[in-house]
């Protein structure tokens, strides 16, 4: 997990633990912000878009840092991310098509 070669094991340990708690702070902060918006912002497309963007920010930090994907080789990163990108495409396609199926 040590990302720098010049650190002693003790320093690397400290740096890793600090990194973990930084990511924790980001995840907790984004979630707290979502709560704030849920009660202060009127419901609608704008608020939903903000929620979706915040969800992807949290997903990025969990996958990249907690699951360590950011530090894997490129081939592995792309074999995981690319299929997921196609799923996002599918979601958008189905929402667009779905709204025309159920249009009144």
């Amino acid at each position: 997990m040590a990302h720098s070669e010049n650190l002693t094991p003790e320093e690397a340990h400290k740096a890793n633990v600090r990194r973990i708690w930084t990511v924790t702070g980001i995840l907790a902060g984004v979630t707290a912000l979502e709560f704030l918006l849920a009660f202060t912002m009127p419901a609608g497309i704008a608020r939903n878009m903000i929620f979706v963007i915040m969800t992807f920010i949290k997903a990025f930090y969990i996958v990249a840092e907690f699951m360590h994907l950011r530090h894997e080789v490129k081939v592995l990163i792309w074999s995981i991310v690319l299929p997921c990108a196609f799923v996002v495409w599918l979601v958008i396609a189905l929402l667009v098509e779905g709204s025309s199926i159920f249009a009144k």
Binding site: F51, T55, A59, F66
Partner: peptide
């Protein structure tokens, strides 16, 4: 972590939106 990741999406799309 994946279980946590799924909950992040369930939380947004089931409870917030």
């Amino acid at each position: 972590h994946f279980v946590d990741l799924v909950w992040v999406f369930v939380f947004t799309f089931f409870y917030l939106v």
